[in-house]
Amino acid sequence: MASKSEFSGADSGAEWERFDTRQRLIRYFLTLGVLVILAAAWRSMDINYGYVASAPNEVMDLLTRMYPPNVIYTSEIVGPLLETINISILGTALAIVMALPVAFLSASNTTPNRWTYLFGKFIVSFTRSVNVIIWALIFVVLFGPGALAGVLAIAVRSVGFTAKLLGEAIEEIDRGPVEAISATGASTFQMFIYGIIPQIKPAFISVATFRWDINVRASTIIGFVGAGGIGVALQTNINYFKWDAVLTILIAILGIVLVSEGISAYLRGKVS
């Protein structure tokens, strides 16, 4: 099969061609198809071309109104920023607590039976497929506006991701050491502490810190639907057109995102 395209050059004699005719046609039609879809998509969007034409100007205008950032406002966002970080930490911690049992259910070597396995897989894919902002909407309905709804939204959204990666780590466990530990007369729990935990610990730490990094970003926006954090302040300032304060907030967000990314990368580098 694979040799077909390799030797096709022989048919075309001395002339060298990168692709044979059939491949060329396929490529041509694929490209054409993509272009047609694009054109159709653009047309059917009913975009107001007045807006499009003025967009660059508007964006520039926005930028000039943002600069310089409002320095005095900085003191007012310390609280919301801390809340944002708190939400990300608590959300991640809660996610891990909830993800552990799910991970053991969704790992084929630790799940009790086929039904629990399917149940685990279902939780993993369902929580992952619903965006954090939708979870935030739901939890704001339940718990009212505030950080609690945010923590829960972040936690629930993270369960699937965390459980999936942890489950994969559990599936890769080497049975040998685990057996060897139980052969010494250790109890199930001791076997767990000495045989299983050391094997999944690196994956555990890197998954947790990686997810925390993602969650810091997520906790900056759940405020748009009232679930706490810096997003609330950001939305308010945008609605009142206080662009210099908006820039202050954006810079602050950039700061915490970069710092959390650095911390998370450092921690992941440490475990190996």
Binding site: D174, G176, P177, E179, A180, I181, A183, G185, P198
Partner: peptide, 15 residues
Amino acid sequence: RRDMGMIHQEFNLVE
């Protein structure tokens, strides 16, 4: 099991 020491082919240490 405490009275039976086992030694394994692949060592089976917790790496």
